[in-house]
Write a protein that binds this DNA or RNA. Sequence first.
DNA 1: GCGACAG
DNA 2: ATCTTGTCGC
Length: 227
Amino acid sequence: MPYYKRFDAPPPDPKVLQELTAQQRQMQGNIILQKPDFELKYIAGCDSSFIGEDTILSVFILLTYPRLEVVEKVWHHGAVDLPYIPGFLSFREAPNLLKAYEKLQQKPDLIMVDGHGISHPRRLGIATHLGLHLNKPTMGVAKKVLVGKYNEPAATKGAIAPLVYKDEVIANVVRTKDNIKPVFVSPGHLIDLQSATDIAMHCALKHKLPEPTRLADHYAAVFKKLV
DNA sequence: GCGACAG
DNA sequence: ATCTTGTCGC
């Protein structure tokens, strides 16, 4: 049984958070950051939105790579148990994301997640979390920093700056569009920082968010109206 | 003790 | 994430 299911409706009290923290620490040793050893033919983007207070709707968009043509769109919604707590996002969103993932006919070679990968207090952001559960390459693209410090990258598209936390480069701050706030790209699992950064840039067309994430974000709003 | 704090 | 008006720019 996936370990997160052992926490069916855990109340957000300090004791439970300590247990969740312990679980993340335990998983740290399983994270693999390496040059990709897969053929990137299909890439998926995922995102979640909320309907009211306790219902989550997750979306997965499958695209071809490197052409980025949409070939599949799936979604799933259900109840959420935990409230949002910085550092524990995956316990709130991963369960439903995994159910949406199961609906994909064709599984992707890499998943681009909205949120951080290893750029997390315990190196277990939601992208890494999903990667370990699925034993699948994942990378994170976040709109805001969680931990770490950085210097603003140049204002032109393509400019990058390292995000440092405890003397370690945990992500790249990437300018995906001229004069627009940068995004934070980090490896999730089974990929390295440089490759994740290259892929994010390749997917950065005319918007701030790379296509997989942008489309997942877009369709999350679309599907929400159908619920 | 005082901020910071993915989605 | 979500609540929300007008506004600046391609």
